[in-house]
Design a protein around this nucleic acid. Structure first.
Lengths: 302, 302
DNA sequence: AATACCCATAAATAAAAGCTATGAATGGAA
DNA sequence: TTCCATTCATAGCTTTTATTTATGGGTATT
């Protein structure tokens, strides 16, 4: 399903920011040829090329840069309008009891809650953190109205709805040799000392699966230290003791500041969807609906 | 073909301004169920109704009004950006020799030429007025590069491309009894004294065809006066001597000011496409392409 | 030279958008 | 009232568009 007023523009935006048709296709859950076609049709409609292509990649043309800016502005404007339109519906005061995983609570939720406050100042929001199982049990006990987790949920009583595609990347200290290479081999990564999340962590599980798909057992890794939270991992990796893997979301700031460096691993793109979990059945207050709309409209970091 | 980045929004806009699914469907060249479906899907995506429906018609909801404004703004912004993007292509100076029918030259062209001047100040534009046959012969003699006419053109050597759907309406003086009725009968119109365009006029021909489809011969009309131009017709109709028919485009200002009134004739919607005619083959200067893009982007009056 | 990655193309399939036909509700007109 | 025309909605079928899988040719890296 695409369910988007102007899907093609959305695809264009994703391609533009990820700088690659292939990468965009993986994030959008589309095949690469589909993305290629979207871009081609868009260019045809505009009557001008938006990207310069080579077999090594694509780059935005000048026109592409200008058009990208317009598309971004348009999407922002639309989100604003929709917030505003939904607001009157919800001079609903009341409280939204929310559960979220640690990662989501730390690096994603803030923006969504700000928008919620702006459009519905009267809604109070109580947040509980916990892992997926914990969130689900809170939901079943009606201790919360909505949960945000990394893993899917197959129970009948619960409705799951993906709202964001999180990407997990390998990181190293800025000076690290792997960080400077264009395409470091998997074996090189396996050889490095690694700082990892604990057993049972969602992030770790995704990496385990990705490695297994390449025929590597996680236990073969040279894990020198485990932590229950991302900040500690950042600290250690930054100091150069070892490398690590984390959600791109959680290291965005450090990457920009140069405290950490990304280890580029082509064709690797480990992603996992974030899910909104809600109880099946009607939504008497309407608050959950409002919140879910906000999540959907901010389906990419701003 | 729809060839529009966000067709659904375009459909919404047309429905909103024409205030009716049926009317919009005719202008958009879509079936009424198709339009119904577009609107329904859009409402579903937004999670709120945009129209209040009854079997007698539809009305924008408050949300619909706000959203309409946003859509209009977005389309304007997009047109501006595209103008700008195409401009650098065309610091092409040079001249565009243009032919246009009287109606188009008077009521449509100004806006397009303003936009052309803004994006390509160096392009000079020479305009010749004339009827369809005249325009076509100018085009074949290479006296002009592009022509704008009301009727289609089937010649091999000429490429025709519709860019606007013009609507012809009956008008009367503001106090006229027909103007106040909800659904005046055709026979009532036939009985009235009528001020008409001359034989051979494109506008007149369209009306003749529409009447014939309802089993009425044009000659049965009570024509009291004929004119070769719209302004004179407006004058006479306004004075109450008789009623007339004209392109909605040409009476928009008078309708708004209250100098003239529309005679509503349900199920009537007489329309005709405006066509851009160009010579087949390549476009060496690129100016024609620029102009055609501008026409396409302003495919509705602003 | 071999490999691994990029983007483009082709053919087949899945999904969406379209049309025709029809129905139920409304509002004038006979 | 009853009839007729017009409104929008729904259903079933067709056509068009979007998407996937499979494949190829081109560059950079090893």
């Amino acid at each position: 399903m695409n369910g988007m007023m102007d899907y093609r523009l959305h695809v264009f935006r994703q391609v533009a920011v990820s700088g690659s048709l292939t990468r965009a296709s993986r994030i959008l859950h589309l095949s690469q040829p589909a993305v290629t076609k979207h871009i081609k049709l868009l260019e045809e409609e505009l009557g001008m090329p938006l990207f310069v292509r080579s077999s090594s990649g694509i780059v935005l043309t000048d026109a592409g840069v200008v058009f990208l800016q317009h598309v971004v502005e348009t999407e922002r404007a639309r989100a604003r309008v929709l917030d505003q339109l939904r607001a009157p519906l919800g001079q609903l005061s009341g409280s939204l009891r929310l559960g979220a995983s640690r990662t989501i609570a730390s690096y994603w939720l803030a923006d969504a809650l700000i928008r919620l406050k702006k459009s519905h100042p009267l809604i109070r929001c109580d947040l509980s953190e916990g892992n997926t199982e914990h969130i689900i049990s809170l939901l079943l006990d009606q201790k919360i109205e909505a949960g945000l987790v990394e893993g899917p949920c197959r129970r009948r009583e619960i409705r799951a709805q993906a709202f964001f595609e999180d990407e997990i990347i390998w990181i190293a200290s800025p000076g690290h040799e792997l960080a400077r290479e264009r395409k470091p081999d998997l074996s090189r990564i396996l050889a490095c000392p690694i700082v990892s999340r604990e057993v049972g962590s969602g992030t770790r599980k995704v990496v385990e699966i990705a490695l297994r798909q390449r025929g590597v057992t996680f236990s073969r890794l040279n894990i020198i230290q485990e932590f229950h939270n991302s900040e500690a991992i950042k600290q250690m990796v930054s100091s150069g003791v070892g490398i690590g893997y984390l959600s791109r979301l959680s290291v965005q700031a450090e990457l920009a500041r140069g405290n950490l460096a990304e280890i580029r691993s082509p064709g690797w793109l480990i992603t996992r969807p974030f899910f909104l979990l809600t109880a099946q059945g009607p939504d008497p207050s309407g608050i959950v609906r409002v919140f879910s709309d906000i999540l959907r409209d901010s389906s990419s970091p701003r």
